[in-house]
């Protein structure tokens, strides 16, 4: 599994790891039923603290992307997102960019739509 992070960015590293894995599950790069690397290994490969990775894994569990089972590790339960949804998101992101709307605002709007 490949993960790219930017420790100098304003987004916390755990959120970047969480987003990277979520995207890979959504695009099917990481298959449903696959096991994520142990938190220790992922932390070692990126040179970050293990608790950073554990926090990302907890976020993925709360988001319904993975299940954390004792002894079995992190198992992917999320399925690839339909390409229609990804296209719609891409359009929304492009619209927001051209209109100069920051990412936080866009996410808030999406969350509100989703919860309503």
């Amino acid at each position: 599994m490949f993960v790219l992070i930017d420790p100098t960015a304003t987004t916390p590293v755990f959120a970047q790891i969480e987003a990277s894995i979520t995207t890979q599950i959504a695009t099917g790069t990481i298959a449903t039923g696959a096991r994520l690397p142990a938190a220790r290994e992922l932390a070692e490969s990126l040179g970050v603290n293990i608790h950073t990775v554990l926090r990302a894994y907890q976020g993925l569990r709360d988001g319904g992307q993975i299940e954390l089972r004792r002894g079995r590790g992190a198992v992917v339960v999320g399925a690839p997102t339909a390409s229609r949804v990804r296209d719609a998101v891409a359009r929304a992101a492009a619209e927001a960019k051209s209109a100069g709307i920051p990412i936080g605002t866009l996410l808030a709007l999406v969350r509100e739509e989703y919860d309503s």
């Binding site: 599994m1 490949f2 993960v3 790219l4 992070i5 930017d6 420790p7 100098t8 960015a9 690397p37 290994e41 992922l42 490969s45 990126l46 040179g47 970050v48």
Partner: peptide, 15 residues
Amino acid sequence: RLPVRPGEVAGWTGK
């Protein structure tokens, strides 16, 4: 090599 920008960190794990 990967197009990693300054400050970015790339990690890979496999089995």
